[in-house]
Every structure is written in C-alpha cells, then in structure tokens.
Measured scan of single mutants.
Amino acid sequence: MASQGTKRSYEQMETDGERQNATEIRASVGKMIDGIGRFYIQMCTELKLSDYEGRLIQNSLTIERMVLSAFDERRNKYLEEHPSAGKDPKKTGGPIYKRVDRKWMRELVLYDKEEIRRIWRQANNGDDATAGLTHMMIWHSNLNDTTYQRTRALVRTGMDPRMCSLMQGSTLPRRSGAAGAAVKGVGTMVMELIRMIKRGINDRNFWRGENGRKTRSAYERMCNILKGKFQTAAQRAMMDQVRESRNPGNAEIEDLIFLARSALILRGSVAHKSCLPACVYGPAVASGYDFEKEGYSLVGIDPFKLLQNSQVYSLIRPNENPAHKSQLVWMACNSAAFEDLRVLSFIRGTKVSPRGKLSTRGVQIASNENMDAMESSTLELRSRYWAIRTRSGGNTNQQRASAGQISVQPAFSVQRNLPFDKPTIMAAFTGNTEGRTSDMRAEIIRMMEGAKPEEMSFQGRGVFELSDERAANPIVPSFDMSNEGSYFFGDNAEEYDN
C-alpha cells in the first residue's frame, strides 16, 4: 500500500510504541512475548500442572481467558453494579484439565481477579502490559475465525453469508486497541457500523446529549479505520460520505453494504499476525530463551520457528480426527482463516481442507461434555516452508469459486491468482447506482469489472525454506488448481455463540 510509510507498523501498534527502528520493534515485541511466557509459567505453578498438562491447549485457553477477564475493567465495573446470582464479580476462573488415573478430569478453578492481575503485572515488570493482553485477544479471535462461520451475524446486519472472507476479527472485544483495529476485516468494521446506525434509528437519543457526542466521535473513528483499509480513492470518498452524514440511517447502511461487497474484489488491507497460545510461549521462556534479547516478529519467520520446536497437546472428542484438529489450530496460529487453501497447503506441506470436510468441533470443551471418553493427542503445528504475512489485500483475480465463501483475504505475501467468483459478486451490483453516491458507485463498479483474471497478485513473492531466515531465496510455489480455494466452501461450520 502506498501510504505504508505514514502508518505505524503493526509491531508498533502491538507494543504501543512511538516510531521505533526494526531492532527496537523486535525487542519490544519480544518483551511482550516474554511477559506472556513468564505469566503462563507462574500460572502453571499456581495450578500445580504437570509439564504435559501445561502444554494442553484447553488449559492455555482457560488461563488466557482468566487474565483477560481480570483486566476487563468495563465488564468488571458492570458486574459490580449489576450483581447477578451466583456470579462473584471479583473472581474469575474456568475449567482446568488434569490427568488422573490414566483419565482426563475437569476441575473448575476460581481465583481472585486481583490475584491474577498481581501475577500478570509481576510477570511483566510491574506494568499492565496491555500489548500482551491484546495479543491474547487476537489469538482467540484468530481461533474463532478458523472455527466458526459468522453466517447468522452477517444475515442479521443485512449482509450476504458468502462475504465471510471479510469477517476477520469479528469476535475481537471493543477494547483491543490499535492492534485489534489493524486485524479487523472490512466486513467486521461494516458490521460494527451498521449495528451502531441501527441503534440510532431505533433509539432517538442515541446521537443526542453528552453521551451522543461520545457516540458520534466513536462512529467517526470507526469510519476512519474502515476508510484506511480501502485502497481505492472511490471507496475512500464513499467512506467520507458515510462519516460526514448528519443523521446516519438506511442510506448509510446501503452504502456500507455496497462497500463491503466491493471489497470482495477491490480488497481492503487487513493486517495478519501470528499470535500463538500462551502454552507455546511459556515452555520456550522456561527453556531459557530470551525473546527480548533475541527479538521477535509476528509477521516473519519467528512464529514458524517457534511452532517448529513446540509440543502442544489437545483434548480430542471420541469421533474427532486429531489431524483435522491440528489443521484448525495451525490455521489459527498463522492467522489464515480466509487465505486461499492452495497457498496454505503449499506452505504447510500437507493438504489443507475446507472447514466442512474437517471432523472436528471447536477447541474448547463445553462444561456439560462427558470427560470419560476424552483422549488427548499432539497437535501437528509444523510447516514445510515459511512466508511473510501481508497486510495488503493483493490485486484481484477471477477463479472458480464456491457456493460458500466467494473470495479470499490473503494472509501471506505469496504470488498467486486470487480466487473470487466474479459473476456471483457482480450480480449483486445491478441497477442500484442512484442517489448521492452514484458517481462513486459507478466508478467502483467500473474498477471491479476491469479486474483481470490473468493478473498475478504479489508478483514474484515466494515462500522460503525454514533454514532461509533472511528470506534470501524465494520459492514461487505451484498450486494444484483442481483443489478448492475457499475454506468455508459450501460450508456447515458451527455458528459462533458468545
């Protein structure tokens, strides 16, 4: 993207840094990872977990959730003011799984939030270390993106479920800051804005008074975040219109849905970061690795190297396929839920299948599930090659597409044709070009129609051997075009429920 120079890199967003050079960025990201790792080690000690239990991804998720809940100030305040039966607002906890007599047992633990905050700050040299908290939120978000298709949420806001490739980060909490905003897809931002506008339509006082002023500035800020994701002048001009509207209503909703559809071809720039579970960072720190000293990046080879040398386990339900569970977590670790499966298959070195073909449910185990038949197995999170994460949407291309997802959002900077089903997408653009945004709409449609099938995206960008740390010898991959490109292809993934 041309304006790259004016933006802070995501590592800076990730670490609240002012302008830093590459070495400083690597050190501050490393410091953040160190903090998460030290916190995780301490929690495993508190909970008396064995090494194996500490490497269980379900335990990692519970521990991450506990610290996120302990620092969720708004919710904590709300819980104190609106006490609900049987919930102690000062405590947080969740299921911890232990191996007892050759069987997995679930144990519900409860801790004072104050105590968890103390352990977290102690692991982070006394700081609140917001960057580390956001990092864990993005890992949870990436896992949700890989596990669930947001059909219901899309339909509720009037969008087409086939636009799911635009929904990265749709389950990120509001408090995820600049680093969170960077990884949100165009569809996620559109959905947040539509929800806001709908509230304004239904509630006369939404934009009024002292609160209304705050609401208005939040609305304009979200519009600017979305505008910054678009790469064409016409899309940005249309966002200006939406932002400046005196009284946002149905016309703005129409414009936003139009823009979301246009992003299936004229893709937005959305950041991709490899955020790993805390149970990967903990053992690495415990083994003596100093992330701050060595430096770390979320968008280069580092996460690949770390996963190459990590042992992570997962509980497996009786009829689940461990290899499929591994694929789910591998995609989440690489922030690749909406990437082209052919690119992923090449990088991973084994075939990556669409969601609907995987015999696996989510990673988390519900409290009512029976533990008797639970097994555990090693997650295979290694890769054959590594590639640089991208934040450009890439230019655009036609490809055989599917009944489910009709476009992709690249996660890796790797040369390819970008699949999208042009006739299906263009069919949504018939007729409606009147109104105050008509010239911009016409211009956007013209650009979409001009998108050429034979153009290559990320020209000359390749993948790298894991021994090639400096990215000196790019390998331009070859793809098996007979395979499906979309992950949520004609899909039956479970729906995400809060």
Rank of each mutant, 00 (worst) to 15 (best):
E220T: 13
G394Q: 11
T134E: 03
L266W: 11
I197N: 11
S60Y: 01
G362A: 10
M238Q: 14
L172P: 09
M1Q: 11
A428E: 02
S335P: 06
R195Y: 06
A260S: 15
S486W: 02
A428K: 11
G490T: 00
A471S: 02
S141F: 12
T6Q: 00
A387D: 07
A2S: 01
G94A: 05
T424I: 13
Y78K: 01
M196H: 02
A2M: 09
G37T: 04
R175D: 04
P248S: 12
I445F: 05
A493M: 07
M447Q: 14
A284F: 12
S287F: 09
A129K: 15
A70G: 15
R26I: 07
R348Y: 05
G185K: 05
R162E: 07
D88N: 15
C279I: 08
Y496I: 10
Y487C: 08
M426E: 00
R199Q: 10
F338A: 13
P477V: 00
Y296I: 04
K325T: 09
Y487N: 09
W330L: 08
A182K: 02
K422M: 14
R65P: 09
Y496S: 05
A442T: 15
A472F: 10
A401I: 01
R102Y: 14
R317Y: 03
N492T: 14
R436N: 07
K91F: 03
T390W: 01
R55D: 10
M159S: 05
R102P: 02
E252N: 13
Q364M: 15
K357F: 04
S402D: 00
I445C: 14
V352Y: 10
M189H: 10
Q122L: 13
G169E: 13
L379E: 06
T147G: 08
E46R: 11
P89E: 01
Q20C: 00
D468W: 01
G228M: 13
A387I: 02
R19V: 03
N250C: 13
T424S: 13
V270A: 12
M159R: 02
M196R: 02
S84K: 01
A366F: 05
M371W: 02
V109R: 04
G450H: 10
A27P: 02
V363G: 01
Q122Y: 00
S9T: 11
E449H: 08
S486P: 07
F488L: 08
E210Q: 08
E73W: 08
E107C: 08
D160I: 08
R204G: 04
G35E: 07
P89Q: 02
G268N: 12
R461L: 09
E53P: 05
K113Q: 12
A451K: 12
E380H: 07
G54T: 13
D240F: 01
I63L: 14
K7L: 00
P303R: 06
L298V: 05
Y10I: 14
F488N: 03
L61I: 14
E252Q: 10
L328Y: 02
R348S: 08
L276G: 07
L307G: 06
P474C: 01
V155T: 12
S3D: 00
V183T: 14
V312D: 03
P410D: 00
K229C: 06
A131C: 03
A85P: 14
G17K: 13
P474T: 13
I33C: 14
A70F: 01
K227F: 09
P410T: 02
N498L: 02
A260G: 12
G431C: 10
I425H: 00
E244S: 07
A85L: 09
T390V: 05
R267D: 03
W104S: 04
V285R: 02
D480C: 05
R152E: 05
G282P: 01
N334I: 04
K229N: 13
K90E: 07
G394V: 07
V186M: 13
S377H: 15
M331F: 03
C333E: 02
V242K: 02
P277T: 12
K325I: 06
G450R: 03
Y111S: 12
V183P: 04
P354Q: 07
Y281F: 10
K452H: 12
L154F: 02
S478T: 02
C279R: 03
H82K: 09
A427S: 13
C223E: 11
D160H: 08
F71N: 10
K357W: 04
D128W: 00
H324I: 04
E294M: 06
T232E: 09
G187K: 07
L259P: 06
I444H: 00
S467T: 13
G228T: 13
S335V: 01
N473F: 14
M481E: 06
F488Q: 02
L154R: 02
M481P: 01
Y78P: 00
L193I: 12
F429E: 01
F304S: 05
A387N: 04
L379I: 13
M238W: 01
L358V: 12
Q4R: 01
S176R: 03
R38F: 06
Q364A: 07
G435N: 08
A471M: 01
T92R: 06
N247F: 07
K325Y: 05
Q4F: 15
A182E: 04
R441L: 07
Q415Y: 02
T350Y: 00
R26L: 04
F346V: 14
L143F: 08
A271E: 08
Q122I: 15
N397A: 11
Q231V: 05
M222Q: 02
R441F: 06
S457K: 00
D497Q: 00
H140T: 10
M66H: 05
S314L: 02
G5I: 00
I365H: 09
A401Y: 01
L306E: 06
D51H: 02
D145Q: 04
L49M: 12
W104M: 09
Q308N: 14
N417A: 01
R195K: 11
E73S: 12
Y111R: 00
E46V: 08
I265Q: 06
S407M: 13
R470S: 13
F488R: 00
M137Q: 04
A251F: 08
D34L: 14
E210M: 08
R19D: 04
G393R: 06
D468N: 12
M440Q: 10
G35K: 10
N124A: 08
D203I: 03
D372Q: 08
I36G: 05
R446F: 00
A182L: 05
M374F: 02
W207R: 08
M189E: 06
G126I: 05
D480M: 03
G187P: 08
E192T: 05
I301S: 13
N334D: 08
D439V: 11
N211H: 04
R243A: 10
S69I: 06
S165T: 13
D203W: 06
K98S: 11
E339K: 13
I197L: 03
T433Q: 13
A271W: 08
H324G: 08
E449R: 06
V343W: 00
C279P: 03
N370Q: 15
M239W: 02
R38T: 12
P277W: 04
V343M: 13
A182R: 00
S60H: 01
N125L: 14
P161V: 12
P354Y: 12
A233C: 10
S3K: 01
N205V: 11
A323V: 13
E53G: 04
C44T: 09
L306C: 11
G431W: 06
L266E: 07
M159Y: 02
K48V: 10
E24M: 11
L68N: 14
A411F: 02
Y78C: 07
I257T: 11
I57D: 04
R461S: 03
I96P: 03
F206K: 08
Q459S: 11
H140D: 11
W139K: 04
A472G: 08
E73Y: 13
L226Y: 09
R99W: 04
H324K: 01
A332C: 03
L49N: 07
F464W: 00
I365T: 11
I445E: 04
W139A: 03
M159N: 03
Q308F: 09
F338C: 10
G158L: 13
E292L: 14
K31T: 06
I194S: 01
R99Q: 07
G490Q: 02
N397F: 15
M189L: 15
N397P: 00
S245P: 15
L154E: 03
M196I: 11
G462K: 03
A271Y: 10
I197Y: 03
R361K: 12
Q12H: 15
R384Q: 09
L68S: 12
L166D: 10
R208S: 05
A366Q: 02
N59Y: 05
